[in-house]
Amino acid sequence: MPKPRIGIYGLTSCAGDQLTILNCEDEILEIASRVDIKSFCLAQTGNEETKLDIALVEGTVSTQKDLERLREIRGRASILVAMGTCACWGGMYTMRNDISRTELLKGVYGENGDKYFDSLPAQPLKNFVKVDLPITGCPIEKKWFLRIFKAFLHGDIIEVPNFSLCSECKLKENECLLVNRGIFCLGPITLAGCKARCPSHNIPCIGCHGPVDEANYAAEVNILLDKEYTLEEIKRKMGFFVFNPDIKQRQ
């Protein structure tokens, strides 16, 4: 059987997810021997933009160029994987989507700022193309990347965590920051997978894995209002990762 042809790409992003793949130090050689990596700009030269069995795409669509590139990749990939919270949900790039691009460009690049770049309100891949599989995380979890990768190669059903962070946090026997200390924590509506990395160090969850399926935003807002956080603060902090107008549209 020929090896699956893989392409790994980044749109507007920090390249953290691509870097996570490179950080799989113990497994990377084995991975490379099982697939034919046609394109991976971050890691190799001589890339070949050709038909792919799997395209892994990181980042948000934030420019016209991103959009064209995404459509071009989708056009030649049998399976498209949205890699990382930005690609899956828009992530923090969507925080300023309520302000016009012109205003933002001028704010950052000066009076003529809007003349230099094309810029679109940041959006996740699935708003434009069919995404076959999301691998969320900021960055993606090495463990889940590997498990999904292996399941895919083996032809298994791909199972990813589909429950909220609180359960993983409980298994670590962390004292609940939200309940016991009244600290602003987005655990109840955030997708698990990180084994409660931050709460295990007394740092509340800011939702970097994106929202859990059917996240109960209203209930989380009520929980936080009950702890005397203002609606303004709740909106601001939720808007960081787990809740933004783009997500709302798709619920």
Binding site: E27, A151, H154, D156, S164, C166, K170
Partner: peptide, 26 residues
């Protein structure tokens, strides 16, 4: 919020899921 806390901390909740973790050698 379906966070699952009540279940994890419950002395008598016992449900589990089963999954296979395949090695890279396939």
């Amino acid at each position: 919020t379906s966070c699952g806390t009540c279940s994890m901390v419950c002395p008598t909740c016992y449900c589990y899921r089963i999954f296979d973790d395949i090695s890279l050698d396939m």
